[in-house]
Design a protein around this nucleic acid. Structure first.
Lengths: 159, 159
DNA sequence: TTTGAAAACGCGAATTC
DNA sequence: GAATTCGCGTTTTCAAA
């Protein structure tokens, strides 16, 4: 749910969602607050789940996953019980980085990071084999990644 | 480029890409290494840019951006100089979280987080207005987000 | 209620072995 | 790779606005 965050909160978020290790004192001088005030606000936003997590961003290429695929999956909407198990299958599959259920003809959009084409094909085979309601899928290969991340813009009205 | 990371490196990455604040000593006991060994490995992987960043993950809904859109953008490939400026436009637009150039008929895939439909429409208007090579786009609205993140699977062969 | 200052604490970085 | 020392960021406390 939408939280009411003031100008300071938003400026703190704008900073730490790019660099979570930035010392609170630095942030404080940047935005005109003391270090302790900054930390208290961060702690509060963690409690409120405005800050969901603090994570290390790993370069997929460095760990041998140079391929990113965007997969449009079309499912039969007739059998809702199969939809639930497909959701679980997606959730359990670590190679699938992101997944949305979108408007359209029963479509999922998946972001998949793969070692190579064979690796990817094997995943899709498994998906088809283990989920009877998947009618078809269409794959696009990311030729270049312009942007990747979870940055949320912070240009909200101040309060 | 692909780095050679051993079993320990990969297990460390698997942990900290879910929780970057986990103390090195905890990680050490989990994987059978001393705290300092864990810290040195993390420092090394930061240097090597295996770890790209450490960031706070912010809940889009909490900050008033409840809508996620997946946008397929079709561009004319005839004028490469316009492609470069479109790239810059995408990079500069904070509302666009992710962007890939993909196989197909000159297509970009964008992940956009918006305040509301009007907000989104205004962005697309701007995109069309400021980029002459954008031929058309197609939008799908994320009805539900099953998965969101930058987790890279770590099930690589040990060394 | 929230701030800023100062204290104690604990984690992580550097050094040494 | 492990152990110790050291520095710094965080946490806590407290007084003031």
């Amino acid at each position: 749910m939408a939280m009411d965050l003031d100008k300071f909160d938003r400026r703190i978020l704008a900073v730490i969602q790019k660099d979570a290790r930035r010392p609170a004192e630095l942030i404080g001088t940047e935005i005109g607050l003391s270090a302790s005030a900054v930390q208290r606000r961060i702690a509060r936003m963690r409690d409120e789940a405005v800050i969901t997590a603090e994570v290390a961003v790993v370069d997929p290429i460095s760990v041998g996953r140079p391929l990113t695929m965007i997969v449009d999956v079309e499912v039969e909407r007739e059998r809702p019980e199969l939809l639930a198990s497909l959701k679980q299958w997606i959730a359990a599959e670590p190679v699938i980085q992101e997944a949305w259920y979108v408007t359209g003809a029963g479509d999922y959009v998946l972001i998949v990071v793969a070692r190579d084409v064979d690796d990817f094909d094997a995943l899709m085979q498994r998906m088809m084999g283990e989920n009877a309601n998947v009618r078809r899928f269409q794959t696009r290969v990311a030729l270049s990644t312009l942007k990747r991340g979870v940055l949320v813009p912070m240009d909200q009205p101040a309060s």
